[in-house]
Amino acid sequence: MKTPLMLFVIAVAAVADQVTKALALSLLSAGMPFSILPGFNLTLSFNEGASFGMLSGVMSGKPLVMAGLTGVLTLGLAVVAFRSRHPLERAGFALIVGGSLGNIIDRVRQGAVTDFLDFYWRDWHWPTFNLADIAIFLGAMCIIATAVPLRSRKGSADGQT
């Protein structure tokens, strides 16, 4: 993946995240689920912590600290992305960087990350998330896919047939 394409993936992930969050903020009321399908609601919520609300108690009221920490990690991942030579790995890092930027924008702009995708089973709800989180997850899957060695269909991993 060439650098301009990688920058495009970063921008699309961040912009798509911000557009969907703007729609959620304008169309949904906090804590009021809007049913889409059995097992899936749109439910507006705000996360001051890290992924899945971890550290929300520690980071409550400290959005710039959280944005700064996330920013440092994102910058490090961007450097790795630009140094990587494997196209799928570069795409994975680009998705992670773009998703992370989307969440950093929320922290700086409003003090918390906007979440609205709510999957559940009966009374159990997966932590609410957003498009940035999907980009980060897909990016991680791309990176993992490049790390898993594939065996040849004709022979074993050591080259013997």
Score class of each variant (00 low, 15 high):
residue 25 L to M: 13
residue 49 G to Q: 12
residue 84 S to I: 09
residue 14 A to N: 02
residue 90 R to L: 07
residue 39 G to V: 13
residue 138 L to T: 05
residue 90 R to G: 10
residue 77 L to K: 00
residue 76 G to Y: 04
residue 134 I to L: 13
residue 100 S to L: 04
residue 158 D to H: 10
residue 131 L to M: 14
residue 30 A to G: 03
residue 60 S to K: 15
residue 149 P to C: 06
residue 36 I to F: 14
residue 128 T to R: 11
residue 65 V to F: 15
residue 148 V to H: 02
residue 144 I to R: 05
residue 135 A to L: 06
residue 116 F to Y: 15
residue 114 T to G: 00
residue 22 A to V: 01
residue 42 L to P: 01
residue 80 V to T: 12
residue 12 V to F: 15
residue 141 M to T: 10
residue 60 S to E: 11
residue 113 V to S: 01
residue 140 A to E: 05
residue 160 Q to R: 14
residue 136 I to D: 01
residue 152 S to H: 12
residue 8 F to C: 12
residue 92 G to S: 09
residue 142 C to R: 05
residue 7 L to A: 13
residue 42 L to C: 07
residue 107 R to F: 04
residue 18 Q to K: 06
residue 66 M to N: 09
residue 88 L to R: 14
residue 106 D to H: 04
residue 129 F to R: 01
residue 65 V to D: 01
residue 152 S to V: 01
residue 84 S to C: 12
residue 81 A to D: 00
residue 50 A to G: 06
residue 143 I to C: 07
residue 104 I to A: 01
residue 143 I to Y: 05
residue 43 T to V: 08
residue 129 F to H: 04
residue 106 D to M: 01
residue 134 I to M: 14
residue 13 A to G: 03
residue 56 S to F: 03
residue 69 L to V: 14
residue 108 V to N: 02
residue 33 P to G: 09
residue 153 R to E: 13
residue 85 R to G: 12
residue 21 K to E: 02
residue 9 V to G: 01
residue 48 E to Y: 04
residue 140 A to K: 03
residue 30 A to I: 03
residue 132 A to T: 03
residue 114 T to Q: 00
residue 94 A to E: 03
residue 119 F to S: 07
residue 154 K to D: 13
residue 68 G to W: 06
residue 139 G to Y: 09
residue 110 Q to N: 08
residue 6 M to E: 02
residue 50 A to W: 09
residue 79 V to T: 03
residue 19 V to N: 06
residue 35 S to H: 15
residue 99 G to V: 04
residue 70 T to P: 00
residue 41 N to Y: 05
residue 144 I to F: 13
residue 101 L to T: 01
residue 124 W to T: 11
residue 48 E to K: 11
residue 53 G to R: 07
residue 100 S to D: 01
residue 56 S to N: 13
residue 65 V to Y: 12
residue 152 S to C: 04
residue 125 H to S: 13
residue 73 L to F: 13
residue 15 V to S: 07
residue 11 A to Q: 03
residue 4 P to M: 09
residue 5 L to T: 14
residue 127 P to M: 06
residue 79 V to E: 01
residue 119 F to R: 07
residue 66 M to C: 04
residue 31 G to A: 10
residue 15 V to K: 02
residue 132 A to V: 04
residue 60 S to H: 14
residue 1 M to V: 12
residue 94 A to D: 06
residue 68 G to Y: 08
residue 114 T to A: 04
residue 123 D to I: 05
residue 103 N to K: 02
residue 144 I to M: 15
residue 141 M to S: 08
residue 130 N to C: 08
residue 45 S to C: 05
